[in-house]
Amino acid sequence: MAEVLALVVSSVHAYEGRPQDGPRPDPEPVSRPEVRVRAGLGLVGDRYFNRPAHRAAAVTLFAVESLADIGGDPLNTRRNIIVRGIDVDLLAREKAEFTLDTGDGPIRFQAHTAATPCRWMDTVLAPGAFRALRGKGGARCTPLTDGLLRVGQATFTRHT
């Protein structure tokens, strides 16, 4: 069984400019107990929702296990769905389809590419996080079905 640890929706891009200047403040808390997912569009309320340039990367999935040797708050990765118990980076490498179900029905996703870390990770997580997260930065995905995700236990199914 997998677990959804956090859901992150942000209407603004907080990591712009120089990392030494610090992130832009969010106008509202980014952590949510639940999020509405729309097929082909992303997470309702997120800055990448329904953006044509980001359709193949509308949702980012991140495994908290990637922070085991780094530390830091996984919310600071700014990945949308933070999970435990799923090999997220393998999903990205294999461009796999998968479903997550947190109790309101399965939501199908297509993984497209790896979510590469940026230099901001050294500032918001820990020194050296940028390099340490290479190859472990998560997966950029497109939702294929509509649904609702909640924080908590989840059923994960990888499709072939």
Rank of each mutant, 00 (worst) to 15 (best):
E3S: 14
L5F: 13
A6N: 11
A14G: 01
E16H: 03
G17Y: 10
G17I: 04
G17R: 06
Q20T: 09
P23A: 05
P23L: 10
P25D: 12
P25Y: 11
P27T: 07
P27E: 03
P29L: 04
P29A: 14
R32H: 12
R32I: 11
P33G: 04
P33K: 04
L41A: 15
G45R: 07
D46K: 12
F49G: 03
F49H: 11
N50I: 13
N50G: 10
N50M: 12
P52L: 01
P52F: 06
P52H: 03
H54V: 01
A57G: 12
A58K: 07
A58G: 10
V59G: 12
V59N: 15
F62M: 08
F62L: 06
A63M: 00
V64S: 03
L67Q: 05
G71S: 01
D73N: 11
D73H: 10
P74A: 07
L75H: 05
L75Q: 09
N76V: 08
R79V: 07
R79H: 12
I81N: 15
I82A: 14
R84N: 14
D87T: 02
V88Y: 14
V88M: 09
V88Q: 09
D89E: 13
L90C: 11
L90I: 04
L91D: 12
L91P: 15
E94Y: 09
E94D: 02
A96K: 15
E97N: 02
E97F: 00
F98A: 05
L100C: 09
L100V: 06
T102G: 07
T102P: 13
D104K: 12
G105K: 15
I107E: 02
R108Q: 04
F109M: 04
Q110C: 01
A111T: 10
H112M: 02
T113P: 03
T113H: 15
T116A: 08
C118A: 08
R119M: 05
R119A: 11
W120C: 12
W120F: 12
W120V: 07
M121S: 13
D122I: 01
D122Q: 08
T123F: 09
V124L: 13
V124G: 10
V124D: 11
L125Y: 11
L125P: 14
P127K: 11
F130I: 02
R131T: 07
A132G: 02
L133F: 07
G135R: 00
G135I: 01
R140A: 08
C141M: 09
T142H: 00
P143I: 03
L144W: 03
G147K: 05
G147W: 08
R150I: 02
R150T: 04
A154H: 03
T155E: 14
F156K: 05
R158F: 09
H159Q: 03
